[in-house]
Simulated assay, not measured.
Amino acid sequence: MAEIKVETSADSPAVLHSPHASTQPNNPLSRKLNKILETRLDNDKEMLEALKSLSVFFTENSLRTRRNLRGDIERRSLSINEEFARLFKEVKEELEGVHEDVQDMSTCCDEMTNRLKAAKDQTQDLIVKTNKLQGENHRLELRAQVAQAFLDKFQLSNEELSTLRGPRDAPITENFFKALSRVKHIHEDVKILLRTNQQTAGLEIMEQMAVLQETSYEQLYRWAQNECRGLTQETCDISPVLTQAMEALQDRSVLYKYTLDEFGTARRCAVVRGFIDALTRGGHGGTPRPIEMHSHDPYEVMRPIVL
C-alpha cells in the first residue's frame, strides 16, 4: 500500500503527497481525508455516543475483528431489535389483557346502569310517596315543636301539678311557691291569646289557672293557719316559710286577714301563757322567782315585765 502523508502549511490546508502521484486538489480521496481530519470529535455528540457504544463489545482491535466489525454491528443491532420486539410483544399482550379487563368492566357498568335505570323506573312512585311522607313528617315535627313550646309556656309540668295538688297535710316547701308563681305568670300571659284567634284556648287555660290558684291559696291558708295555731311560748317566732306564705296570701286579702287574725290570737295566747308562767312559776328551774312572790314590791313586779 502506498504511504500517505499529510502536511499542513500556513497558507494552505492539508495537502496529500504521494511518491507516485502529483497533487490533485479535486481528488475524492483527498477531500474525504481532509473532511475526516478537519472533524472535531469534541463537538460531535452523536459520534461520541456511537464510539462509546462500540467500545462496549469491540474490545479487541485486530485485523479479524476490524473485518467483522460491520457484521458484528449488524448482528448486535438485529439482536437488540429482536429483544425490543420480544419485550414490546409482552407489553402488547399485557395491554391486550388490560383492554379485555376494561371491556369487561365497561360491560358490567353498562349492565349495572341498565339495572339501576330499570329499578329507578320501577320505584319512581315509591320515591314520590317517600318524599311526600318526609315532607309531611317535617310539617308534623314542626307542629309538635310549636305545640310543645305552647305547653311549656301555658301549662304546668307534672311535678308542679303534683306539688300544688298535694295532700291536705303535706308540708309547704319552696317548690310550692315556685309553682304558685308560675301559675300567676301563666294567668297573666294567657291574656295574649284573648287578642288572637285562639280565644277559646285562652279562656280554658285562664279558667284552669284560676282554679289552680284558688286551690293553692286555700291549701296555703290552711297550712299557715295550722302553723299559727302551733305557735307556743317557746316557738313564737315566725319561720321563713310562714313569712313567705303570708307574703303570697296578700294577693287574697280575706285569707290574709284571717291568717293575721289567727297569728294574732296564737301570739296573744303565747304571751298570756308566758305571763302566767312568769307570774306563778317563774323562770326555768325557779330562776327568776315568780312575780307574785314580789307582790308587795311594785318595782320587782314591773321589772321582769319591762325587761
Rank of each mutant, 00 (worst) to 15 (best):
G274T: 11
T23H: 03
M206C: 04
L37P: 00
N43W: 13
Q145W: 07
V146K: 13
R273Y: 02
M246F: 08
R143H: 07
P13W: 04
C109R: 14
A278E: 01
H17V: 11
K257P: 00
D237W: 07
K184W: 05
M302A: 11
E214M: 01
G71K: 15
V56R: 13
L41M: 08
I186S: 02
E96K: 06
E292F: 15
V102F: 01
V56T: 12
L37V: 01
K184A: 12
L279S: 07
A210S: 13
G230P: 02
L194M: 03
L51A: 05
K120F: 10
V98I: 15
Q122K: 15
K117Y: 15
V301M: 08
T23W: 06
V15S: 11
Q122Y: 13
Y258N: 11
A224T: 15
Q122N: 14
T235W: 04
N61W: 05
C236M: 12
T8Q: 15
L249K: 05
G282Y: 01
T265P: 00
S12D: 08
G97A: 14
L151S: 14
L242C: 04
L151E: 13
N131D: 06
E7S: 06
Q24M: 05
N68L: 04
Q134I: 04
D72S: 08
S253M: 05
P290H: 00
L78A: 12
N26Y: 07
D11V: 07
A10R: 11
Q148A: 11
L133E: 06
E82V: 12
V211I: 08
F275E: 11
A85M: 09
I172G: 02
T163A: 08
K132E: 03
S181V: 12
N158C: 07
R222F: 03
R168E: 15
A179T: 08
L260H: 03
N68E: 09
R267G: 09
N197G: 04
F57W: 14
M1V: 02
N61L: 10
P28Y: 08
F263T: 09
Q145E: 15
R165Y: 09
Y221H: 06
R229K: 14
N68I: 01
H296R: 09
A2G: 08
E60H: 07
R165M: 11
L180G: 05
E227H: 07
V306Y: 04
S295G: 12
R222I: 05
D261R: 07
K89R: 07
L140G: 06
L87P: 02
S30D: 12
A118I: 13
H20L: 08
L249I: 04
K153N: 09
R143P: 00
N27F: 08
E188I: 13
V98A: 14
V146L: 11
E292H: 15
G135C: 03
I172R: 01
F84D: 15
L255N: 02
L126D: 10
L48P: 00
R268D: 07
L194H: 00
Q198T: 01
S253Q: 09
R268K: 10
S181G: 10
E159Q: 03
I4T: 05
L161A: 03
P240L: 03
V271W: 13
R303Q: 10
P19R: 14
R281P: 04
F176P: 14
F58R: 01
A149S: 13
S157F: 04
